[in-house]
Design a protein around this nucleic acid. Structure first.
Length: 554
RNA sequence: GCGCCCGUAGCUCAGCGGAUAGAGCAGGGGACUUCUAAUCCCAAGGCCGCAGGUUCGAAUCCUGCCGGGCGCACCA
């Protein structure tokens, strides 16, 4: 029996009780849940439905709980129901009903944990979107890990997801980049407002190798060559380092295309139609204060140039016109000031921003060695890059470390910790379970132990404390996936995996799976192998959601 | 000044209104002729920043304050 099935049974019992007592059944919720209590004395699962309903229907909670308990007691699979405290229902399952879950999980395989919570929702998920003026820096890497994990989570809960990287290839940053390349190619010092770092010289050298005639052009023409070629080289490099990191996007969107296709004019027209555009001081403005922004925003400057914000508007409209119900954008904490204007902009288009636009803010990341932040990159100068991080701790540890913390908290990634092969390194702790379960599987095959036919599985034999705890942990996975997707919090999956890993290690320590020496293979060995294999499935499914490998051996 | 985020064990952090607030690390004590000890077990460690409010019930929701981080362009 799964927690979801148990929750349904609780709700069904409530319906029966309400019918018996002649209570108003419209007071009952559509769905309820059961909790996994920390304290084992509180049963396998606890239901708080009686506490929640008592006031609504004017029946004391313990009385209501008593009726529910009486109803539930006769449900197949439930061993006992106790009333505790103010009106908790503490429920214990039969070992057989609990143990069946192992078979359910093994049968479901990669499907276990997936659901349809967000089915029918078309979501555009934009993250990283670093300017092609340098390698991806560590702030962008956080979103590469979290955003990619989130896209996997949203898909696992049924959403139709398009991931997107906004390639900012227009504007003054790119001009600075081009000027820096040109200066480097000519052996001059970097311009005052330009980019430094060894990569500038590398890219400049690649451009001159590809286009040797460039140095004989005048500066304006040469700079244009460096702009076009440099951006392309940089972007190729960014894509390739993200691919090595396990992250690929469905769409790489060029800002330049918005301009070339006249989408800014199109957006301006739409906004004018909605009545939120005005002209002042020679510039064209969007009255975002109509929707709570603290000041109005310029769309087109008095010199005729578009602002970056105008491109944001056009890009948002473009996504909506491509059929996305919800536009999700992941930004660093230094961009949180954008939320107000972005939400207001969506409202200016006539959308309800609460439905159509979600902006997720992530705090900053530091790489730490010997207690002090690493500030300089060998190649990029003042910023730490994706490569620096991967060189320091590897892809799996990097993705796990970035995804295991709430995006609301700043993180320090300690190089020494994340390369350690011990319990205190969470990624090793979790991956070790993947390797252990696989190893048990190999050894089982060697001694002739198999799970056997599914109908020979005897789940009631899984009645050891540690088996029960492991089964309960395995049962939680679908609810964790759903919550993580709904709250956009992939770190919940990582924390869950650590919890599950602990439950497995304790099971392994207390419950011998394989027969020793010349022992006969028994049904208990087989039942435990089902549990071992179910754990391997859930660990692998969970690590997949984080984009981390589930090794067969370590 | 205004806005956003944070404040939980010595340290790093979990905890989308539930019971006696959890985990890892550090420090103390144990378990290796092992199905992978990259593991497990025991003990110890707390005005959940402060003060009010809502609630049967608040670390969690609301208000105010204190402390820390970040941001407030016709920049990109």
């Amino acid at each position: 029996m799964t927690p979801a099935e148990l929750a349904e049974a609780v709700l069904a019992a409530a319906h029966a009780v309400f019918a018996d007592r002649g209570l108003d059944r419209s007071a009952l919720p559509e769905q309820t849940t059961v909790e996994r209590p920390r304290n084992p004395e509180h049963g396998d699962y606890a239901a708080t439905l009686a506490l929640q309903l008592s006031k609504k229907v004017g029946v004391p909670p313990r009385e209501l709980a008593g009726d529910l308990a009486a109803q539930l007691a006769s449900t197949p699979g439930i061993k006992s129901v106790e009333i505790a405290g103010p009106g908790f229902l503490n429920i214990r399952l039969d070992a057989a009903a609990a143990g069946q879950l192992a078979r359910t999980i093994v049968a479901a395989g990669a499907e276990y944990g997936r659901g349809d919570l967000l089915a029918g929702l078309k979501i555009n998920l934009e993250f990283v979107s670093a300017n092609p003026t340098g390698p991806v820096h560590i702030g962008g890497v956080r979103w590469a890990a979290v955003g990619d994990a989130l896209s996997r989570l949203l898909r696992a809960t049924g959403a139709d997801v398009g991931t997107e990287y906004y390639f900012n290839d227009a504007g003054s940053q790119i001009d600075r980049f081009a000027r820096s390349l040109l200066a480097a190619a000519k052996g001059e010092p970097a311009p005052e407002d330009g980019y430094g770092g060894a990569y500038i010289a590398e890219i400049a050298a690649q451009v001159t190798a590809r286009r040797p005639e460039v140095l004989s052009l005048d500066d304006a023409a040469a700079q244009e060559v460096f702009r076009v070629e440099g951006v392309e080289l940089m972007f190729t490099e960014i894509k390739s380092s993200l691919r090595d990191f396990g992250v690929e996007f469905d769409t790489y969107f060029n800002e330049k295309d918005l301009h070339d296709r006249g989408e800014l004019e199109h957006a301006l027209t739409r906004l004018r139609e909605q009545g939120h555009v005005f002209d002042a001081d020679g510039a064209t403005w969007l009255r975002t204060t109509d929707f709570g922004d603290d000041k109005d925003r310029v769309l087109r400057k008095s010199n005729g140039e578009w602002t970056y914000f105008a491109a944001d508007c056009a890009y948002y409209l473009d996504k909506r016109e491509r059929g996305f119900d919800r536009v999700v954008i992941m930004l660093g904490a230094d961009h949180h000031g954008y939320i107000g204007r972005m939400k207001a902009m969506a409202a200016c288009f006539g959308d309800d921003p609460a439905q159509s636009l979600e902006i997720l803010i992530g705090q900053l990341v530091n790489l730490v060695r010997d207690g002090a932040p690493v500030r300089m990159s060998k190649r990029a100068g003042t910023v730490i890059t994706l490569e620096d991080l991967v060189d320091a701790i590897g892809v799996d540890a990097a993705r796990y470390a970035l995804a295991r913390y709430s995006s609301d908290s700043p993180i320090d990634i300690d190089i020494e910790l994340w390369t350690r092969a011990t319990r205190d390194n969470p990624v090793y702790y979790v991956q070790y379970v993947a390797a252990r379960t696989a190893s048990v599987g190999r050894n089982a095959a060697e001694v002739g132990l198999t799970r056997g036919e599914a109908d020979a599985f005897r789940p009631e034999l899984l009645d050891h404390d540690k088996e029960n705890e492991l089964l309960k942990a395995l049962a939680e996975f679908p609810a964790v996936v759903a919550a993580a997707a709904e709250l956009r919090e992939p770190h919940r999956v990582a924390r869950y995996l650590e919890d599950l890993a602990g439950a497995y290690h304790r099971f392994y320590d207390n419950c011998r799976i394989l027969p020793r020496g010349d022992e006969e293979v028994t049904d208990l060995h087989r039942a435990r192998l089902w549990l071992n294999d179910a754990t391997r499935v859930v660990i692998a499914n969970g690590l997949y959601l984080l984009g981390v490998s589930a090794p067969e051996r370590m």
